[in-house]
């Protein structure tokens, strides 16, 4: 089967299968099995059902390497280590963990580490983001 046809078919089949979900809405009580499942660390995805994914090589982008270097510098200055970084990625919660690109998880965790370590306040961080955004948008014009 040609690749295009297969990809199309796969997308179609994937969308056909209904997604089952247990709705979690802060229940008054939960069974022990559910408690054990909820304690599962977010990054421990091995064995979860999925469909075949296309394999491709991705070039590293500047922002990704900047995120990496920022994380390394934070480690060098003793703010965290790579295991704390992984823990902070998990602590982002499922929505952000699976929603963000890989290095966006790093840098979001790093931003939270900076706030936790009292190296920067949240409003200083927001102001800096706005300042940089303005600068980049001015450059585009």
């Amino acid at each position: 089967m040609a690749t295009m046809q297969y990809d199309k078919l796969l997308t179609k089949v994937r969308n056909l299968s209904p997604e089952e979900r247990d709705v979690l809405d802060s229940p008054y009580t939960i069974p022990n099995e559910l408690y054990a499942a909820l304690r599962s660390v977010l990054h421990d995805v091995g064995g979860q059902p999925d469909t075949p994914q296309p394999y491709f090589l991705k070039e590293e982008e500047d922002w990704e390497m900047n995120a990496y270097l920022t994380s390394e510098c934070l480690a060098w200055r003793g703010a965290w280590n790579s295991e704390m970084r992984r823990r902070r990625e998990n602590d982002l919660g499922a929505t952000e963990y699976f929603g963000l690109p890989y290095y966006a998880r790093w840098i979001t965790g790093a931003a939270k580490a900076l706030v936790d370590e009292k190296l920067i306040t949240v409003d200083e961080l927001s102001a800096k983001i706005d300042e940089i955004r303005e600068r980049l948008e001015a450059k585009k014009k």
């Binding site: 304690r39 660390v41 421990d44 091995g46 992984r86 823990r87």
Partner: peptide, 11 residues
């Protein structure tokens, strides 16, 4: 039983 961060895959 585990709480919080660990790296032992459940499988």
């Amino acid at each position: 039983t585990t709480l919080f961060h660990h790296r032992t895959q459940k499988f």
